[in-house]
Each structure stands twice: as C-alpha cells, then as structure tokens.
Design a protein around this nucleic acid. Structure first.
Length: 322
DNA sequence: TGGCATT
C-alpha cells in the first residue's frame, strides 16, 4: 500500500502524438503536471521518425494519475493524444495485434469490439475508412492485451460468419507496422520548408486546445472534415500583412498539388488581412501540409493551418466568409 | 495492412 510509486503506476504510454512534436515539447507538456523520471518519443533509430507514441515515467503515481486525467484527450495540432498507464512489457503482449478482413460495410469499432470482446481484453481497435469517401474499407485491426488472447480469437472466429456478416471474416496476425514505417510514398514524410524548419520553436499554447474525450472517438482520424469535389480547402491564419498569393504558393507547394490560393485583402490598406485559403487536390498532402505548417513560425508569427471546415473547433480568429 | 499501443 505504501509504495504506490513503482512503474506499474508511474509509467504512462502516450498515443496519437503528432508527427512533428519534438522531444522537448513532449517533455515540457508532461512536466507541467509534476516531476518526471524520464520521457521518450519512440522513434526509428536511423531516421528519427516518430512512431506516434511515447512514454513518460513520473516520480509519483499521483502525478501520473493526474496526467491521465488532465492531458488525455488534449488536442495537439491535428491529433488528440491519449494518455494511459503503460502495461508492463514482456513477450506476452507482443504479437497480439490482429488484422481482420471482410467486415460488414456499416461496422465501426463498436461492432468490431463486440465480436472480439469475448476472447480477451481489447487494448485498441480500428476499422479502416477511406478518407476520401468516408466508406469503410471493411478491414480492421484488433489489438489484444496478450498474444494468447489474440490466438484464441483467431481459433474461435477464423472463417466463421458472425451474426450480421454475409461472408466469413478473415483473421490474421497483423504486420508489425512500427518496425517498418513506409518509406515509399512521397507525401508520407515531406520535409518542412527551410524557413519553417530553421525558425524559432513553436509556441505551444496556440496549438493546445482542450477537448472533451467523451465527445469523440479516439479512432477518428480527421474529425469534422468533409471532402469536396473541388479539393480540400485549408484555412491559413497569421500569415502576416505582407503575404500575397505567391506566399501561399511557396508555403504549400512543397507538400503537393495546390489548386488555388486566395489571400484575403484589406482593400483600403491594399494589404493582406493576415489570413487566406489554400485548396489542395489530395487530402493526404493537405493533411501533411497541416501537420508540418500548423504552429510553425512564419515571419515571426506562428501559422495556424487547418481544414477550413474544421475551424469551428479551433479557436477561430476570424469569421469564415468564403 | 493503421498517421503508428510497449521503449
């Protein structure tokens, strides 16, 4: 009872970290709750690429608990981080992730969980959604607490046609994604432009926004965002009064196809009002531009970049007029 | 066959 400060109650795993979050930002965020023993974003050893999760060990269990309560669900850039006690490591939790195919199209995580729940403790699950159409890819993942549970689920469910399904579901152990991050695909890891990379460190406050964890699903990738036939329009705020259309082209072209840019002008002063819009063709490229440019200092001020249709959630600075 | 759940 006395020693509640062993690692089982002080070691936290943090999931859904934004790709560009630095180790320093990560550390200082969790330091704001109390003294910590260690912090680490898990990265590829050779490329330093973040796997999107990390660990923090607090000195005191009570601070770890408070970090869970106060920081889980915090929106960082385009992500909502999740903070939870880390499970004790060990061989039994490795290889516990399942890949599932032939799911009924309407199924979400709720239905997937219901099917897999009887065979073990589900840590995380996901149904893959086509981002452009919003339609299920009929493929999902179920991560169990232990390998044994995953094996059991395979044994019991493989080839079965569960209630609500019209064909047998296919279950396999999932590929270990964290060990071989895709290097192919040019938009996966586009370097940020030099002026952003070399600039001062971003402030945190402009990117930290409270979020009610009960209001949303941790699994949703791009909440509140709707594709349009004309492409994906981004709202760019704090771009400065000297900005022109050309500025937006220069900022966003490195991330993919830019269809259109539109600087909002103050016609009396004949200068930029400090914000504009950029329409990109490809949602992945648009998202990557957001990941890389949101929060970065540009000419002395932190840019705010988001999907235009998402702005109602994000400390709106100006009314949306187009 | 995941914008990444065990360092």
């Amino acid at each position: 009872m006395e020693d509640q400060n062993d690692e089982s109650s002080t070691n936290l795993i943090i999931n859904y970290l934004p790709q560009t979050l630095s180790d320093e930002e990560f550390r200082s965020l969790f330091l704001s709750v109390g003294p910590i023993t260690s912090s680490k974003i898990v990265r590829d050893k050779s490329t330093n690429y973040s796997y999107g999760f990390g660990f923090v060990v607090y000195e005191r269990a009570q601070d770890a608990q408070r970090a869970i309560e106060t920081l889980s669900g915090l929106q960082l850039q385009n992500k909502r981080i999740k903070v939870a006690l880390a499970r004790p490591g060990g061989d039994q939790i490795k290889g516990a992730n399942l890949y599932v195919r032939n799911l009924p199209t309407p199924w979400k995580e709720t239905e997937l969980n219901k099917l897999f729940d009887p065979y073990g403790k589900i840590i995380q699950s996901r149904v893959l959604i086509d981002l452009a159409t919003g339609v299920s890819k009929r493929v999902g993942f179920v991560l169990y607490d232990t390998r044994d549970e995953a094996e059991n689920a395979i044994k019991c469910l493989s080839g079965k046609t569960p209630e609500g399904c019209t064909e047998p579901i296919m279950i396999k152990f999932a590929d270990d994604n964290t060990k071989k991050i895709k290097q192919q695909g040019s938009v996966q890891y586009v370097p940020i432009p030099n002026f952003a990379a070399g600039g001062p460190m971003r402030t945190q406050m402009n990117r930290f926004q409270r979020f009610n964890p009960m209001a949303g699903n941790f699994n949703s990738q791009v909440p509140g965002m709707a594709p349009s036939q004309q492409g994906y329009t981004l709202f760019v705020y704090n771009i400065g009064f000297l900005a022109t259309d050309r500025t937006l082209w220069q900022l966003f072209s490195p991330f993919g196809t830019v269809q259109k840019v539109n600087i909002m002008l103050d016609h009396e002063k004949n200068q930029c009002k400090g914000y504009g819009f950029v329409t990109m063709t490809n949602i992945t490229e648009a998202q990557n531009a957001i990941n890389c440019l949101n929060g970065f200092y540009f000419q002395g001020k932190p840019l705010q970049v988001s999907f235009k249709n998402q702005n109602q959630n994000q400390n709106q600075q100006v009314p949306l007029t187009n």
